[in-house]
Design a protein around this nucleic acid. Structure first.
Lengths: 369, 369
DNA sequence: CTGAAAGCGCTTACAG
DNA sequence: CTGAAAGCGCTTACAG
């Protein structure tokens, strides 16, 4: 207590009391350069006694490294980003890095402001879920300033930065194929499809070949729709436009309305595929309201941000997204870049996994009319 | 492009090109002190042209303020902390502050390391969900170093720092009272109760007066149990120990097993109260497995971290926690303290809200035997 | 209103 | 292995 008088214990104070130069004190405390064992011991003892703590700001100012990575998420409150963030934080912490988080709410201006703040705070690298897939001036500026950028969930066309994404198209396709093989011919899809790099939904559905579409240039929910369409095309099953529901908002309430409309209609689907967690929640709400029994009356496969949706309802088949891993991979990538790794751009694509219980598998064809 | 050659644009460069001193350039760019309109214009033009960005590290080193707040959460991936974090980030951003997040996984050593890292990074204040309610040396050190601390969700005994908590006891009591009034006499409770400041569960249940228990000294799940016990005591309904299930782990799978055991037993409860989101998920899993119909066969009131649990299942009554608001309040408090507010310690207690649908209200007594 | 100088708390060459 | 000196990019008194 008595020793805690002096307010700021700097390396100067430690050096003085240990009878060495600040350079020497710095070398032992900072762990760089040589020092005699005798001095090491002396300096450490004094530092310990005074409760010395390095000021990482000063160190960062000199070294140009802050041991901090910046993250621009869409919305940290959503289970999707929360899981990714956890993965990032875990890897960062294990390497002694801090994490500054911001969220853009998928608003471009917000993302730009966030990136700018992060740059001014001198983060060593930025992990971002870019909200505009076309323009990336701010990210290019970051790269130009030698601040590595890793994109998650989607990536900007032409931006020379690593990315970690999910194989949304593939997982969706596989899920829909399962339904088609079980005999379903009327499979509904409830997807957000709020933002678009493509434009018209009708045209998209009506395309007679999907081989020309580069999934990476589409937003995730469009990629999932693409998988849905591809599965149909390959099976030769025509797509009924009325079964494709574009909610147009990232809102489970809106998804619920859309689903009610879909299920109450004359040509209701026998199976349903949802393109993300919030859509799934809306669909579940509608199903509860209508008292539909799963999977006997309706088969359901959901993209699931939330591990326990399928836990709550064993009759749902969930497409689990490796979100922790996505965060971890992004963090590992950015740390490698910060460390000087200058290998070619990496485009990591992780595969979601479909988890269907055996009990559901056997019931799947029951609802196929 | 041609102008982007020089790597680091510092205030020195801007000053030189604008023909003023660095002091003047700093004054206009930093927005402090006076400058003639002419100089303002000149400096700003040059800064704009060169793409000057202040180095907040340097500024922080001098001012002693980094415009950053540090957060030590339990687990950012959980909806509970994710929502709080969102509230914090929103307020922080609106005031130009950054947020560094870490999680402790409720491990004391991790919390200490996190606090230390945050201090070394010179955050202006720390928001923490303390995992040990008894020891707080690391937090006292922070306070001693003039770094304000705001506690969330619970608070350390005797620590002179603001806190924002929930009225867990009150909300639990109210929920259980609703069940008691509906005629339920056998109300089960599934609670985590992993960590304890109290010790023995039996002794706790057997207390004949709860007035001596200061809820603030208990972990949240114990506070909720306290509310459960108080409601019973006030109604004169005896508590059957077998109905009080201490899961002992923050795990929905374990909660599911515990609930299965509870509901399959001879003296199954007619109503169930769960003490947090993960416990609720476990309970829901058990109910699904057993095919129990809510609320006709069993009334259920859940503490709900997750807005949509009740959305998915309209028959559940949810206790909604104002988590965003908790984060916002904590952020506002810490910013006030950072700003020099030295009013007495504030202990904010927010009230969760019970949301029960009318359709459920009328059915509530049906399951009461 | 402006500039020269000092300094925030460290690290980095550079002699010794 | 060690210390004196310079410097990271800003802000802060302090004269003018």
């Amino acid at each position: 207590m008595a020793e805690k008088r002096s307010d700021k214990i700097t390396i100067i104070e430690v050096a003085r009391r240990a009878g060495v130069s600040t350079a020497t004190a710095g070398r032992v405390l900072g762990g760089y350069g040589y020092a005699s064992d005798e001095n090491k011991e002396k300096v450490r003892a004094v530092a310990e006694e005074l409760g010395y703590r390095p000021n990482l700001l000063a160190r960062g100012l000199i070294t140009g490294k802050t041991q901090t990575i910046g993250v621009v998420a869409g919305d940290i409150e959503s289970p999707f980003y929360a899981s990714i963030l956890r993965g990032i934080a875990d890897v960062a912490r294990s390497k002694g890095f801090g994490v500054i988080v911001t969220d853009s709410d998928e608003v471009f201006q917000r993302e730009r402001d966030a990136v700018q703040l992060l740059m001014e705070k001198q983060v060593d690298g930025i992990i971002v879920a870019p909200c505009d897939l076309e323009s990336s001036r701010h990210l290019q500026d970051a790269l130009a300033a030698h601040c590595p950028v890793v994109q998650i969930d989607r990536f900007v066309k032409g931006l020379k930065a690593d990315s970690v994404t999910l194989d949304n198209r593939g997982a969706a396709k596989e899920a829909v194929q399962i339904l088609l093989r079980a005999g379903h011919r009327r499979i509904g899809i409830v997807a957000e499809l709020e933002q678009s790099t493509f434009g018209d939904l009708r045209t998209f559905i009506g395309m007679n070949s999907f081989s020309s579409v580069e999934p990476g240039t589409l937003y995730p929910s469009w990629q999932r729709l693409l998988g849905y369409l591809e599965a149909h095309a390959e099976s030769g099953v025509p797509v009924d436009e009325r079964l494709v529901r574009r909610v147009g908002a990232y809102s489970s309430a809106a998804a619920r309305e859309e689903t009610l409309d879909l299920l109450r209609g004359g040509d209701a689907p026998t199976a349903l595929f949802t393109a993300d967690g919030l859509m799934s929640a809306g669909v579940m709400g509608a199903i509860s309201t209508l008292g539909i029994e799963l999977p006997r009356e309706l088969s359901l496969i959901c993209f699931d941000d939330l591990d326990w949706m399928s836990f709550l309802r064993p009759s749902i088949t969930a497409i689990a997204q490796p979100l922790n891993e996505m965060g971890r991979a992004a963090a590992r990538l950015i740390l490698a870049r910060i460390g000087g790794d200058d290998t070619p751009i990496e485009q990591l694509v992780l595969a979601p996994r479909i988890r269907m219980r055996d009990s559901v598998t056997s019931l799947l064809s029951q609802s196929a009319t």
